[in-house]
Design a protein around this nucleic acid. Sequence first.
DNA 1: CGACAGTAAGTTGTCAACCGTCGCCCCGCA
DNA 2: TGCGGGGCGACGGTTGACAACTTACTGTCG
Lengths: 219, 219
Amino acid sequence: MAGATAPLLGLEKKSLREQALSALRIAITSGELEPGRHLVETELSDMLQISRGTLREALRQLEQEGLLSAGPRGRLSVRHLDAKEIRDIFAVRAALESLAARTLCELPDRVQVTASLRTAIEAMAAAAEGSLEERIESDLEFHRTMCRLTGNETLLHSWESLEGSIRMSIMFAGLERAVSNMSVDRHYDIVTAIESGDASLARQTILEHMDGAAANLVS
Amino acid sequence: MAGATAPLLGLEKKSLREQALSALRIAITSGELEPGRHLVETELSDMLQISRGTLREALRQLEQEGLLSAGPRGRLSVRHLDAKEIRDIFAVRAALESLAARTLCELPDRVQVTASLRTAIEAMAAAAEGSLEERIESDLEFHRTMCRLTGNETLLHSWESLEGSIRMSIMFAGLERAVSNMSVDRHYDIVTAIESGDASLARQTILEHMDGAAANLVS
DNA sequence: CGACAGTAAGTTGTCAACCGTCGCCCCGCA
DNA sequence: TGCGGGGCGACGGTTGACAACTTACTGTCG
């Protein structure tokens, strides 16, 4: 009893709810749980070896993140995205990230900021030879970092709420198509724009980046 | 609140969890639960007459909406906003709503859209003589409608996730200060900008509106 | 008188079992 | 063929319990 019960998925640090959250997020954004699939609470709680109550808390959160959609009578299923929704998600993402870029432009210590961002890009470059998953991961990390560096917690939080949907978009479109959005050069453009301190240039760069990305995914 | 058994004609549409959610949202944004106040699960579940499990689901959601902040070991308390956070919230809000305005500008059937918005403004004008709460309500309804009319569900959802924080900002700053942001004229400006179809004008109008609003709240 | 160990109370995380209800499917009966 | 039930799956919600951990209190001893 005191010893660990059956090995969950190798996660052993946070609350069970958060572990379940991660596990489900991964299962969904990796396609292990196909879009449209109906989720049965007892089935999942059994699978994850957690109680229904704990699971339900996690499910509620996933629902709010937009990974799950609620049908009649509370039946949850994995959300299915169509092309329009992907464009919509990327439009919101663009709005958030352009705010991030503009904010960073106005920061007094832009030097440190751009340094951090360059580090993130280097991580992307390093991952360029790695698996598709790694490339996607490092790309998202760059954009998340951009939001984090603004120091605007609300912005970061909003972006993270969208992250699940972004990942679903990527999965929906297919990983191959997604990686074509991860040119190192185009990300350097963003950083140089921020470095220049020209807010409207930075904004424009992001908008184009996202526009291209969305178009690429739903082409 | 005492939703005891009133089966006949029962239009009890929402689940207990959602009812609790509303009740708590109201309690917080009305100041009944002061910022910083530590919430005890058993106390609340007792107060709301729901079980701890159901309550916890609601709390998780409020936490994600930014109304509650988690302390060490999961202890929740009512979030406390400072001036910077309010500015940050309004910066994100501005980004979202300026996307909404730009989107509406590009819609083919702008006429219907602006008609709906004018109706919303009229509701504000009608509420101008009413209580402070009514004025705030109708103001938020206008902005929410703007997001809804874009047809971008993700945008609407992101805005609604922010709504709680917006309400807390208003409460924090004091209702009197908040109502000064609700000039009917300034809202007409937004609609006319959208009507003109000039996306960058619409964007600019929103940004100024929000900038002024935030400045007003934290002056 | 003050420090310290030990205990008691408070709170969250998690679980298991249970009930009532709703909707769906299938089956039997007319 | 069609309709009424019965059964079953699944969800919303509840109860009661227990472990782990904090915090506060208290009594004892130096």
